[in-house]
Amino acid sequence: MFDIQTQLFEGRDIRFGPIDYEKDPEIESKWTHDSAFIRMYEINPARPLSAAIVKKQYEKLEKQVEEDKNLYHFMIRAKEDDRLIGKAVIQWVEWTNGNAWVHLGIGSADDQRKGYGSQALSMLVRFAFAELNLFRLSARVPEYNEPAIALFNKFGFVEEVRRRQALDRDGRRWDLIVFGLLNSEWQNQAKPVLSAVEG
């Protein structure tokens, strides 16, 4: 029997949930006003968005999920009070090649450096390999995002590509790193990483 009792969307301190159209737009709008966060989360230009625009983006996103069938989108919520703390995404799934890209972020500075990102990545990777049955995962990280690099290294992602000087920020150019993790590699090291998260 496979591990049916370990919930896919429940971590130690966090859970994955759907979009809450009442509460989430306000919070995500706040994140878009925090340029330090957006520049870590996105390589597109940071720009502040109103709650109404964020709500429209959610609608567009859910339409895309329904139509394109290559996108899985989760809101990361704290278990203690169900507040929104981040987003976790599997995107650009190529079903015939068994490849997809992971993307995640913890929005508010108060919630960062508490291990929530680690728990979210652990759940996201398990979802991709054990539920979507993907063969491998990729992740794209700017060289200045040291916390993300540390996180992907911790989960056994291998630095596969270094796109030299592919980004322009603060008047200088930075490399964009592509990480990769194979399902077989995850199978071999899933337990130690999981127990590190649980511990």
Binding site: N97, E160, V161, R164, A166
Partner: peptide, 24 residues
Amino acid sequence: MEGRTRQDLMREGKHYDSLWMGIL
């Protein structure tokens, strides 16, 4: 050559790498 994403292609039942290149 700037790197290769391992086994991210599947053709005729076998996996192949993608190669990434750039010129500055």
